[in-house]
Design a protein around this nucleic acid. Structure first.
Lengths: 346, 346
DNA sequence: CTGTTAGCGCATTCAG
DNA sequence: CTGAATGCGCTAACAG
């Protein structure tokens, strides 16, 4: 009903209208001390009438809290993608429940200077880091600034930091065992470009290592291909593969565009999934997995769960910064969409 | 060098170290009044030594400015996509140059209440609205709050608001003329789902209207198909189309996943682009357009330009809120990637 | 060219 | 259960 946007009502206005002192208004809001029902009611009325909202800056200045949490979101190489969005959404909701606002903060991982700057402005009470690399310059900045933070993902230095991450080490073995049971013994991995390895991008590295170990245990052959994130690359690779006599009987994807190309190539060759080749795709959203023809069986993580844990951890750290680091590994989840089938010897 | 993250240095600390008064420090920072070189130097030294950063809350409280601008980014239905990201990136950069920080703000368009709440906290000096609908509830909230804002996109009520938008009305005619010159006279449009029409999502509506008009002028037949954003849907449609004798000779896409499916279907039918069918895709990023096989000719907008204009407008409005509304229509840009060819009569 | 002062709107003592 | 006083760190007059 604020028909008059001139000057926002202040706490003093509310106090005057309610006939109480300014501090009483504060206490009515925070519940930090007992207030009689009648005065509380008068205050609430006054606030409603004046359409009062506390001034965040003043709250922050006086109480050294802003209610603001930043989600550092490097966007440089990859842009947003759907599953990132899942995290953002659940984190936003979880934080709102605790009375915080989430600010998405698009910077790139190299630019720790701008992170440093904004953090030192004391505007922000805590930080969530996404797209974390094995060695992430942002961590040092935040440590120095003495601001509470958590990672979605983790760095090399796992023990000393608080994080929530997918259990990538479980992804490969889960896929391998699923395929082993179906009788497969020759897999191809369509991974991401070499830059992900040099950057030390955790998910790719962690997944591949355990995948290979597990495949070895099962006496499986695994060929790894590192492709750029382009439809075309996946297509060309799979065209070549399928023309070979001893081509793999299953494809493990970790590269969304390339896998679309791969599916195309299978179809173009007059073959079909899963009859001629089985497919499991790591880490893509349900939406993406169901948008292709055929839909793809996936192994991935419960994103909302991850984000929720991370925000819980953060809030705990903000309360007691000296507490022990906490960790959460989200278990791998296989969703069978029918793109795998028993191996057919040819 | 802040090895001691305990208490951040304040302006008073700087003043003391530099041997000047507190306000002099402020003026050295803002340049609002002349300062002798020697004192300025002492102040700068002190700031560096103390690793001083102004406290944003205090600045905001005292000077009623926070340096924060929000980008309202409804994520409900569509999630992020690459071209949105282009906007975000250029807006971030443009604002940084003017000394502002951009806060991405993932709320959904319906939830104007949370917008209202955060805006009334006076934390934010201005707002950029993305994914604007013909009738957008956020506009009313911002008007009432009396906070400067601009749209990337526009509402029905074009004249009274400040916005920067693509000239969608030009997209259709540009496509039609390009194809007319190549001798085509039967087009199919692969548009977006019906919900975009009921929401009044501007781009789709505006593009289609002028497209039809222009096609009519050229005596072209146009069939419009409204598909969900799924690969599968595009694929099924085009399979059906291509099996008909009088199928269209050109496809106009406004639906990225569906067009990938469409390309698949063309290939699967043993046909090829552009020999058997020409393709123009509206509004997708260069990256997406080049990721498919074959690459797609596009008609779209210069996203960075749009975002830059919008931020310029916003900053002007923040300075002089009573100024006339400003508008910017970004011209359509056709990028020929070879997916169109002269019509071959069959 | 520089210093002093009075708030900005609120949280938090300290007093009743 | 409630009020009054102090200060968070800074900007913007007001004084030289």
């Amino acid at each position: 009903m604020a028909t008059h946007p001139v000057r926002p009502a202040t706490r003093a206005d509310v106090a005057r209208l309610a006939g109480v002192s300014a501090s009483t208004v504060t206490y009515a809001l925070t519940g930090e001390r007992p207030i009689s029902d009648s005065t509380r009611e008068r205050i609430m009325d006054a606030m409603a009438k004046l359409d009062y909202t506390p001034n965040v800056m003043a709250q922050g200045l006086a109480g050294r809290r802003s209610g603001l949490i930043a989600l550092s979101f490097p966007v440089g190489e990859r842009g947003f993608n759907i599953s990132d969005f899942e995290y953002v959404k659940s984190a936003t909701e979880a934080l709102e429940r605790s009375g915080y606002q989430l600010l998405l903060w698009p910077n790139n991982a190299e630019d720790s200077e701008s992170l440093r700057k904004i953090v030192s402005q004391r505007l922000i009470e805590g930080v969530i880091l996404m797209e974390v690399r094995n060695q992430d310059p942002r961590v040092e900045v935040l440590k120095q600034a003495g601001i509470p933070f958590v990672l979605i993902g983790r760095t090399e230095d796992e023990r000393s930091l608080t994080w929530a991450d997918a259990d990538f080490a479980g992804w490969g073995p889960l896929a391998v065992e699923h395929l082993a049971q179906l009788g497969h013994h020759h897999l191809a991995v369509i991974g991401q470009g070499p830059e992900f390895y040099s950057f030390g991008y955790g998910p790719v590295v962690r997944t591949e290592g355990e995948l290979l170990r597990s495949a070895h245990e099962h006496d499986m052959r695994v060929d790894i291909y590192r492709l750029d994130a382009h439809l075309r690359d996946g297509r060309e690779l799979v065209e070549k593969l399928m023309s070979q006599a001893d081509h793999p009987s299953a494809l493990l994807g970790f590269n969304e565009p390339a896998m679309i190309g791969a599916l195309e190539a299978v179809t173009a060759a007059g073959l079909s999934v899963p009859r001629d080749i089985s497919i499991i795709h790591f880490g893509i959203s349900a939406e993406s997995a169901e948008a292709t023809v055929p839909a793809q069986t996936t192994i991935g993580v419960d994103g909302p769960l991850l984000a929720e844990r991370a925000t819980e951890f953060l809030i705990q750290r903000m309360r007691t910064p000296e507490a022990q680091p906490q960790h959460f590994l989200a278990p791998p989840i296989l969703i069978d969409r029918g793109s795998t089938a028993p191996f057919q010897s040819r």
